[in-house]
């Protein structure tokens, strides 16, 4: 469990970092929090010739909220984001998701941008980016581009970061008023990658009816999967709630189960994972609905 030989540089600016990446080409890898990359190196599952350590790029250590967007710089640790009251207020899904990412010590080092670039389909932040239709800013010596969530995840541990590119920030929209969100997952142990996880976003219409319901899924495919479940939530509204007592998202759960084709692994059979996707869809939608209702009431004059 010792990494093979690699070159190492620690640039002091983004400009330096991208020129180092350009010079080293595909043989170079960015080292951010190291919480995923170091184990890969130590197990000799990855053997990049050169590491460009971005931990000195103080200019990327930020979390900001403006213009309806939450922007997370590449050196913001998971815990920096989680503890940023403005960011989690503007987009509560961030707080809900980050609390489920690993353990505090790992969140102290691991970066949110790194975890999105790492593109583990079991990683919570990939689902957040996908569900919120956020984007990733990629900078290289040639300039910069904004990759949309839809195009960003290519496969397990494979994202659309090209040789020479540095992901400098991730942009996520604020949660609109009248909407609510929730993140729920089943993991084998506290803080583990989820066996199955669901992030849900529910929007309420003027009558308090569910006008939009979308869910993003962890660990059910090679990339985070997003489903639009609005059609299955037809009967649910604040009005129906008053008579039925609890919102009924069972139909949405069934729809999700029908649409998903998860695989099996040593922790779960495919049938169990599919079953979980259904159960968690219901739970996440109910949670997001309750959240939307709470926010609607809060925003009443």
């Amino acid at each position: 469990m010792k990494p093979p030989t690699f070159g190492y540089s620690r640039p002091e600016s983004v400009a330096q970092a991208v020129s180092l990446l350009a010079a080293r080409g595909p043989d170079a890898k960015v080292l951010a929090g190291g919480q995923s990359l170091m184990p890969l190196l130590n197990l000799r599952l990855a053997a990049p010739g050169h590491l460009v350590d971005i931990n000195r790029l103080a200019e990327l250590a930020y979390v900001s909220v403006s213009g309806g967007q939450v922007t997370i710089g590449a050196l913001a640790r998971h815990n920096d984001v989680l503890r940023d009251p403005l960011a989690v207020a503007a987009q509560p899904l961030l707080g809900q998701a980050l609390a489920l990412v690993a353990h505090p010590v790992i969140r102290n080092r691991g970066t949110t941008v790194g975890s999105i670039v790492h593109a583990d389909p079991a990683g919570e932040m990939t689902a957040v980016l996908a569900l919120l239709e956020g984007s990733v800013r990629l900078v290289s010596v040639a300039g910069e581009r904004l990759a949309s969530a839809e195009d960003f995840f290519l496969g397990p541990l494979e994202s659309d970061v090209r040789a020479g590119e540095l992901a400098t920030e991730v942009l996520l929209p604020e949660l609109p008023s009248g909407a609510g969100c929730a993140f729920t997952e089943v993991s084998r142990r506290h803080g583990d990658y989820a066996v199955c996880g669901v992030a849900a976003l529910v929007e309420l219409g003027p009558q308090g009816e569910v006008s939009g319901a979308r869910a993003a899924y962890l660990s059910v495919g090679p990339v985070p999967v997003v489903l639009d479940l609005t059609e299955a939530c037809g009967g649910v509204s604040l009005v129906s709630l008053a008579t039925a007592g609890t919102p009924d998202f069972a139909q949405a759960g069934r729809l999700a189960m029908a649409r998903l084709q998860p695989g099996d692994d040593i922790h779960a059979t495919a049938a169990y994972r599919r079953h979980l996707a259904g159960v968690l869809t219901e739970r996440a939608l109910a949670g997001a609905f309750a959240h939307a209702r709470e926010r609607a009431w809060l925003s009443l004059p």
Partner: peptide, 11 residues
């Protein structure tokens, strides 16, 4: 026994 095992036993 894992949750997945228990689920399969219930089935």
């Amino acid at each position: 026994i894992s949750p997945s095992d228990l689920f399969e036993l219930r089935q």
